[in-house]
Amino acid sequence: MTVVYWLANVLLGGGALLTLVRLARGPSLLDRVVATDTLLIIIAAGLAVHATLARDPTLVPVLVVVSLLAFVGSVSVARYIGGMMVHSSGSGQDAGLPDAAEQRTGGTP
């Protein structure tokens, strides 16, 4: 079980590091939303792995909270960005975000 514990934690940690890379590199706010969502779910998965292998059910309620928090967080940020579109000055670019974000992702000629 120790091997399983370390292996699972290495896999989850690798996944969490990769989402952190995406979180840091952006380029747009929505990428970061996706990365945060994924990161929270990976954290929930890590908690579940620990609870399972240690046979310790005290962490299980935390799982419910974390998984719901990921959902509420990404939905509210998505709605917030959707609301920002109303106030953007009509250029269709990210309001309050660097222009480079659009230029790097947008392949529009």
Binding site: L68, V75, A78
Partner: peptide
């Protein structure tokens, strides 16, 4: 409680994916 987490996850993941990707499409992050 684990069952509850699983059900919540299958219910909520499509919703958040839809909301984020809808905003992404409308803002041309494509």
């Amino acid at each position: 409680m684990l069952l509850l987490v699983a059900v919540f996850q299958t219910l909520t993941a499509p919703i958040s994916a839809h909301m984020v990707s809808r905003v992404a499409y409308r803002r041309r992050h494509v």
